[in-house]
Design a protein around this nucleic acid. Structure first.
Length: 973
RNA sequence: GCCCAUGUGGCGGAAUUGGUAGACGCAGCAGACUCAAAAUCUGCCAUUCGCAAGGGUGUGAAGGUUCGAUUCCUUUCGUGGGCACCA
């Protein structure tokens, strides 16, 4: 009987489905374990081999934990709101719900083929009204909460209102609105609108005016991704900043707790570092500078108050409110010109061109409070209005940007750090002893920071201040395919819907184009927008809304009365293992951490970090093969159908080498001569699906070319005859023409023609082979290139395993004989290794341990059930189908998925002797088998008698003999 | 520029707390079986000198610590990722 993986896998997948073996209960005597994958966006392209890497890893771990006696939750769902479906709808008119449904069906069938142990009854889809009802509900919780600065947690906004009514918001109550103080009486005197405006400043989900990328020509708001070099990606139209009312999440309120929480979770150090950088906490001081001949003061933020005596100039953001007030009459013209220039520059440009130094002197001077020095005040685009106070004190000897600015505008530089400053570049050291620094002279800079701030505070000219780089998270999108906001605007007040009115379902639209004035498509549906109570919010929530809490919904997916029953979330608690890519390092992971903290603060769940352990899977890269192909613009392609079958047909096709050699010289085509310079559109082009058709020497042959361009109806000869454009590099050993391709390793993506479809591999080799091969490629965390060829090796291994049970001719070969010690040793060595490797997610070495085990069993011709069935259990997480099949062939009843994990018996691995490497001066020269219970002296005697050792000693006495028990022996001469 | 990874045969990758570098697999070569092919099996497979026995070199590079370094330290180069006029 041979290994018919297709039949076997189909059989067991059907059986498992019928028996609902993956159904998970919220009630169990077993300890719980929650394994989560980052759920996919169901794109139209389907899965490629890069996707399942993390899914296989989590599946292995889930199955392992189940065998180890845990009640394992391992769900899967779809992040099904998003821009691509909407764009597709815009192009084809198909409703996003329809395409999404279709895509999800494809994804599910692909996933099922690989044999994952998902409990599909717990599936969630973020675009399902039964799901987004609760996304909207949680939004309302955010809207109706504020961050209490004394308790450092979210509280219901009603409590804040009560405080304002009884105590007002005076500086000492601890709950002021930024820059606003009022008494209880004043509060009561405010209009409803005024009160709501104040409350909006404290809500965790709030609305304010913010800037969006507005493209006049397209009449729509664009995402940052859709703007390239200041113009729209599609069409290349100009994009400008436009102020619009936007929703935000006050994630900045949680900055400190998000930082602290990192200490309690197992994320990789680099992941934590990325989040820390994003939050960007910096400690410093804000201080006020008196401006000469002006009653205004200039407030700056600095992290280095110790350098106060090195301040040679001030730089203020061009948008700073003081600019107009301090500019002198003489400088006014220049400043206006500069402001005009800055206005013309998008933020993107300002950020992109860091090298060019621009700026303008205002004519005003600030006074250094410590030495009375007059400091010129400049404006420059390198200082951003949005960070700190929008003004800095420039210390050119200590900051490279300040240094470059000073050099460019010939501003004299004060050196306060002695030899640390070379005059060639700034030095941001904190180790220097301060000079030219008044009361700070002689202090180490590190120590001077505190001294300086103390003095600044004592003089009442400034305070300690913590700043964050992180901004509040923009939460509106001017799009259709997202959760509608449960908000109605009434007389300028945002009024939330009642919970009973949820879900607020997405209305049907006929057109997916933008609404007027930059609003989203929903603004076009006047019936829906205008309600008796007021006008509905027309923007929708961003993609990360639904994904910020989906891990909770899996715990209680069908609950119609709450987002997740407290009993369920108390039982499953944190996600024990979360597997996904690094691309979500700062987006999704920070948002879901924040939502979890809010829900925790409000008493809705019992934990405030969602993910206990995070494993980042690496990227699987693909090989993209390149040739040069280009059009000659005045030529028609003579085989008209070619245009229809393939838009990427070229008049000239050649290897990159030939193109580079020929350069701009002349190409002849149909008797007409072309120079490369004349050719309108030429590009290095990827060869389609070339990883399938390029030979082992990266050559694209005539046959491969035909397949590559999928020209079923046209032979390459025909194309060549009609357009005469292929520059062959030579002939293969078989006499076939070929073009030599160059290749690059790139991220797998459909647009790069370098994807490999898991379905095809599952059909050809089986899911078990595919699963094990993906793991065998290398460590899960590492990114690695895909190479389909290697899969044969894993497939051979599984066939070999099969042949331990079944012979192709003889049939059943397994026996009930008692295993020998040697055979038990192989088994227990494997148990130990597989368990250790699985625990530490070292799946690649686990697969190789299986191979070694099977090779060893073959060598000793072990076909004994007692050994084999234990190995099958070990293999369940990795290759569940073949394990189940062989388990039943051995005569076992019931599913192997519920078997008990074998226990490792150390006694079987105890050795009495060890093959020691003997090295002379650190180089291994011989091997010697010695009993383990020998002492140093006995070992020395035996070693010195050894012929090889004698030879290397050359009659001399050894200086020292190092004997490390169970490791090695080293003779030092 | 800063931060974090990472660098080992033709390729993917192994290698406990410093203890026989290259496990396992791919590709390649040679052979067995076969009419043939597939499948399977056996052997070789870092590099260099040598018929061989055996020796030299070798984990990006250069130093260091050590009886002993892929592993620890210093310097340096390359690659990948993240952040960035953030004061």
């Amino acid at each position: 009987m041979e290994y018919r993986f297709n039949e076997i896998e189909k059989k067991w997948q059907d059986q498992w489905k019928a028996d609902k073996v993956y159904q998970v209960s919220n009630e169990s005597a077993k300890p719980k374990y929650y394994v989560l994958d980052m759920f996919p966006y169901p794109s139209g392209a389907g899965l490629h081999v890069g996707h399942p890497l993390g899914y296989i890893a989590s599946d292995i771990y889930s199955r392992y934990k189940r065998l180890k006696g845990f009640n394992v939750l391992h769900p899967m769902g779809f992040d099904s709101f998003g821009l691509p479906a909407e764009q597709y709808a815009l192009e084809t008119g198909q409703h996003p719900a329809e395409t999404t449904k279709k895509n999800i069906a494809t994804f599910k069938s692909q996933l099922d083929k690989i044999g994952f142990c998902y409990d599909w009854e717990r599936e969630v889809q973020t675009s399902d009204p039964n799901y987004y009802k609760w996304t909207q509900w949680i939004f309302l919780q955010l809207f109706n909460s504020y961050f209490c600065n004394t308790e450092k947690k979210a509280l219901p906004i009603s409590q804040l209102i009560k405080k304002y009514e009884t105590k007002g918001a005076l500086p000492k109550t601890g709950e002021p609105v930024p820059g606003k103080h009022f008494t209880a009486e004043e509060w009561k005197g405010y209009s409803k609108q005024q009160q709501e405006e104040i409350l909006m400043n404290r809500r965790l989900a709030f609305s304010k005016y913010g800037e969006v990328n507005w493209c006049e020509a397209l009449g729509t708001v664009l995402a940052n991704d859709e703007v390239v070099n200041g113009v729209s990606e599609r069409g290349g139209h100009p994009v400008e900043k436009k102020k619009m009312r936007q929703w935000y999440l006050r994630i900045t309120a949680y900055a400190d707790r998000l930082l602290e929480g990192l200490e309690t979770v197992e994320f990789s150090e680099s992941m934590k570092e990325m989040q820390r950088n994003w939050i960007g906490k910096s400690q410093g001081a804000e201080m006020d500078f008196v401006i000469k001949d002006n009653d205004k003061k200039l407030r700056v933020y600095t992290t280095r108050p110790d350098t106060i005596f090195g301040v040679d100039f001030m730089v203020v953001a061009p948008e700073h409110e003081l600019v107009a007030a301090i500019t002198s009459a003489e400088q006014k013209e220049d400043i206006d010109k500069y402001l005009q220039y800055v206005k013309s520059r998008s933020e993107r440009e300002r950020l992109a061109e860091a090298k060019t130094i621009t700026g303008c002197f205002t004519g005003a001077y600030a006074i250094n409070p410590f030495d009375g020095k007059e400091i010129p005040i400049w404006i420059s685009e390198y200082v951003l209005a949005g960070y700190g106070t929008g003004a800095i004190m420039a210390v050119p000897c200590g900051d490279q940007r300040d240094f470059a600015f000073a050099k460019h505008f010939n501003i004299p530089i004060t050196n306060i750090i002695g030899d640390y400053y070379t005059g060639e570049e700034a030095n941001a050291t904190k180790e220097a002893i301060l000079q030219n620094s008044g009361f700070l002279n002689g202090l180490l800079m590190k120590d001077a920071i505190g001294v300086a701030v103390d003095k600044i505070e004592a003089l009442g000219i400034g305070t300690r201040k913590v700043n964050y780089r992180m901004r509040d998270a923009g939460f509106s999108r001017q799009r259709y395919w997202g959760e509608p906001f449960p908000i109605i605007w009434t007389d300028g007040i945002a009024v939330p819907l009642d919970a009973e009115e949820l879900p607020l379902e997405l209305p049907h639209v006929d057109k997916y184009g933008p609404g007027p004035e930059g609003e989203g498509p929903l603004a076009n549906i006047t019936d829906w927008v205008n309600t008796p109570a007021g006008r509905r919010e027309t923007s929708t929530m961003p993609g990360y809304a639904g994904s910020s809490w989906y891990f909770l919904r899996y715990m209680d997916p069908h609950n119609g009365t709450t987002f997740c029953d407290r009993k369920a979330s108390d039982y499953w608690n944190q996600v024990d293992l979360y597997i996904g890519g690094t691309e979500h390092a700062v987006g999704h992971l920070l948002y879901s951490r924040m939502w979890t903290k809010v829900l925790f603060d409000l008493g809705l769940i019992g934990f405030d970090e969602p993910f206990r352990k995070l494993v980042n899977q690496g990227m699987i890269t693909g090989n993209s093969y390149f040739v040069i192909g280009f059009y000659a613009h005045d030529l028609e392609i003579t085989v008209s159908d070619l245009e229809n079958t393939n838009k990427e047909f070229y008049h000239f096709l050649m290897s990159i080498d030939i193109f580079e050699k020929e350069g701009s010289t002349i190409f002849e085509l149909n008797g007409k001569k072309y120079r490369a310079d004349d050719i309108s559109e030429f590009q290095k082009t990827r060869v389609r699906y070339a990883h399938l058709f390029v030979d082992s020497k990266n050559r694209l042959t005539r046959k491969g070319l035909a397949k590559t361009f999928q020209l079923d109806n046209f032979s390459v000869d025909e194309i060549e005859k009609s357009i005469n454009c292929i520059f062959w590099d030579g002939k293969t050993e078989d006499g076939e023409d070929f073009i030599q391709c160059k290749h690059e390793v790139e991220k797998m993506s459909k647009s790069k023609y370098n994807t490999v479809n898991p379905d095809e591999l599952c059909d050809k080799y089986g899911a078990d082979t595919f699963r094990m091969y993906e793991m065998f490629l290398g460590p899960v965390e590492a990114s690695k290139p895909w190479d389909t060829k290697g899969i044969e090796g894993v497939h051979r291994f599984l066939r070999k395993l099969w042949r331990l049970f079944n012979d192709d001719i003889k049939g059943k070969v397994w026996t009930d004989e008692k295993p020998t010690d040697a055979e038990l040793k192989i088994l227990h060595r494997t148990i130990k290794k597989i368990e250790e490797d699985t625990e530490k997610f070292s799946f690649n070495t686990a697969v190789s341990a299986f191979m070694i085990c099977i090779n060893d069993l073959f060598d000793v011709k072990c076909h004994k059930k007692e050994v084999l069935e234990k190995i099958l259990i070990l293999m369940v997480p990795y290759a569940p189908h073949i394990a189940e099949e062989l388990w039943h062939q051995l005569g076992n009843e019931g599913s192997i998925l519920d078997a008990t994990y074998p226990t490792f018996n150390p006694a079987l691995l105890v050795e009495s002797t060890k093959e020691y490497p003997i090295s002379i001066n650190g180089k291994v020269r011989a091997n010697l088998s010695l009993a383990l219970d020998l002492d140093q002296k006995q070992v020395e005697e035996i070693v010195l008698q050894n012929d090889v050792v004698q030879k290397w000693l050359e009659g001399k006495d050894p200086k020292k003999i190092i004997y490390v028990k169970n490791k090695m022996i080293n003779v030092v001469v």
